[in-house]
């Protein structure tokens, strides 16, 4: 938006050097402001790079919620009981809601919703690579809730204090709702782990398949995370990838032990001195492969989203026509009344 006190016609009269200095000044003030834990709201001045970073992060986050509905939606019709089915539906509906809170927050940064969604459909935008893994058994509903939502919560709780107001507020809502997700997942795993040998094996198999992708959800290791430092300086990110990953492992290992399941990491051991678990090497080549589009379900996920959008075209069209008709009828009755 043009600043009325400083219209572009005036600005263009200044030499570039002077403008550059003005921008530097704004940037310094912005960084000091953000560093003092104050919040930025949509109409405030912000550096372009801050805006871009947020648009990228929030839209990816929104896409992850939406694509994240697919692996779980896969099991709604096959949930083992009506209660489990109702719970799973509520959870998947929540993920849709989370996507919408986030798209709404993203839009405050000046992007159009339809364009953001088009970027997902064209494959231009990324989403969390975890959702490119398949959900093969009912136990996967347990593992996804317990581990994937657990890791997501670990990532999202610090975002509740992020410097961008609309993102932080959306995260508060998401985190409140997400803790039910993790608990229901853990409960599924616990029930299976206490069941027959076959059921226990099914739970263990799900843990084996979801453990490594889950701890990769925290992103590349700190020494290979190019955007982290800037995001930390802007108070978008509060803890490093490795810090969050460590926290997640420390919390989760005892939970697995409690229900008699084994973390699939032969090198996992408790370090008395540091008070943390040490884990084995993470296969970052796999992580990069999945991100690059070569995971087990990348194509299927994108195809499903595109199909949902295309199949919904007539609904959007009908809703538009209905709205027009309703508006016309209202206008007509207003004229008649006048």
């Amino acid at each position: 938006m043009e600043n009325p006190l400083c219209p572009s016609s005036v600005l263009s009269a200044f030499p570039d050097v002077f403008l550059k200095r003005m921008e530097m000044d704004l940037l310094q003030r912005f960084e000091a402001y953000v560093a003092s834990e104050k919040k930025i709201e949509p109409k405030d001045w912000m550096p372009d790079a801050y805006r871009k970073t947020l648009i990228r992060q929030i839209s990816q986050h929104a896409h992850s919620e939406i694509v994240g509905m697919l692996p779980e939606g896969n099991w709604i019709s096959r949930a083992p009981s009506l209660k489990r089915k109702a719970i799973l539906m509520a959870k998947v509906q929540d993920e849709a809601g989370h996507g919408l809170y986030l798209y709404s927050a993203c839009e405050t940064l000046g992007v159009q919703r339809d364009d953001t969604i088009a970027d997902l459909h064209s494959g231009k935008a990324k989403y969390s690579s975890i959702f490119n893994y398949p959900t093969l058994t009912w136990a996967d509903m347990g593992a996804v809730g317990w581990l994937v939502d657990g890791a997501a919560i670990m990532n999202q709780v610090p975002l509740c204090k992020c410097s961008y107001g609309p993102y932080a507020r959306a995260m508060v809502r998401v985190c409140k709702e997400e803790s039910f997700h993790q608990r229901q997942g853990f409960q599924i795993m616990m029930t299976l782990a206490q069941g027959t040998e076959d059921q226990k094996a099914m739970a263990q198999d799900a843990l084996n398949r979801w453990w490594w992708p889950s701890i990769m959800m925290f992103g590349p290791p700190d020494d290979n995370s190019p955007n982290s430092a800037q995001s930390m300086a802007w108070n978008i990110k509060r803890f490093s990838n490795d810090e969050l990953r460590q926290k997640f492992i420390d919390l989760t290992v005892p939970q697995a032990e409690l229900i008699g399941l084994t973390i699939p990491d032969a090198d996992l051991k408790w370090n008395e001195e540091t008070g943390h678990y040490e884990h084995g090497p993470i296969d970052w080549a796999e992580f990069n492969r999945v991100i690059a589009g070569h995971g087990p379900c990348n194509k299927e996920r994108l195809a499903a989203r595109n199909k949902a959008w295309d199949d919904g075209a007539w609904v959007r069209e009908a809703a538009g026509a209905h709205a027009e008709k309703r508006a016309a009828r209202k206008a007509a009755s207003n004229t008649a009344a006048a």
Partner: peptide
């Protein structure tokens, strides 16, 4: 609480 898109007020 936030925003959303809809064709009209009822929606």
């Amino acid at each position: 609480v936030g925003s959303l898109h809809a064709a009209d007020a009822e929606m």
